[in-house]
């Protein structure tokens, strides 16, 4: 409530507030790929590394004062790429990707810390992109929990259906599962529809 009032006062005096924009979602939905796309488009450098092994992002990655532009409109965001949230982390899963047991167990420990950190940040973001993999079932308890908590706090959300470049992508399933939220379907990897996303961020989250 206080944050909203502060933003209202800033707007009243013609100042645009900076927004802490969190990128949330389960592991491997393309959150860091999207964060990299945004950072590359507006700052010229990437934010984090991506990998097919789940839980590549195990700490919150931050990029401050990213100025997003679309059709002459601007908005300054502090971008927060969150570790993927899941209810389980099994080190044996990492070993399937050729990782040694010791490394897999360390990754598992770091991943659990990252999940807890991401959950704690839910109270401290001003707006969110919740990223889904369009080839997967959207109706999971992790997704319902993320969206439910953000909604309960009145934090504006855009549901982002990512990976529409993949065969079998069904972004309409995501839109139909959560029709109450702003929705954009994109391919962060190929850059498809990211302009639409920037427009939505400025118009709906600013």
């Amino acid at each position: 409530m206080l944050k909203r009032f502060k933003r209202f006062i800033l707007r009243l005096f013609g100042k645009k507030p900076e927004i802490r924009l969190g990128i949330y979602g389960p592991p491997n939905t393309g959150k860091t790929t999207l964060a990299n796309r945004i950072c590359l488009d507006f700052t010229g450098e990437e934010l984090g590394t991506v990998s097919e092994v789940p839980h590549e992002t195990r700490e919150v990655q931050k990029k401050e004062r990213v100025v997003i532009e679309h059709n002459g409109k601007r908005m300054t965001i502090n971008l927060l790429d969150m570790p993927g949230i899941s209810t389980k982390v099994d080190y044996k899963e990492f070993m399937k990707f050729g990782m040694k047991k010791k490394d897999a167990m360390l990754r598992s420990k770091e991943a659990t810390r990252g999940i807890v950190e991401a959950i704690k940040w839910l109270d401290n973001v001003d707006a969110c992109l919740v990223v889904f993999d369009s080839t997967k079932n959207p109706y999971t308890q992790v997704n319902v929990t993320i969206l439910g908590n953000l909604e309960a706090k009145g934090i504006p959300i855009i549901v982002v259906a990512n990976k529409i470049d993949l065969k079998g992508a069904e972004p309409e399933k995501i839109r139909d599962a959560f029709p109450q939220y702003h929705f954009v379907e994109i391919s962060a990897k190929e850059g498809k529809n990211v302009d639409k996303l920037y427009k939505e961020i400025i118009e709906k989250l600013g």
Partner: peptide
């Protein structure tokens, strides 16, 4: 469970 309770359960 409420969303807040689900969050706590996951955490």
């Amino acid at each position: 469970l409420t969303p807040e309770e689900k969050k706590k359960l996951i955490e």
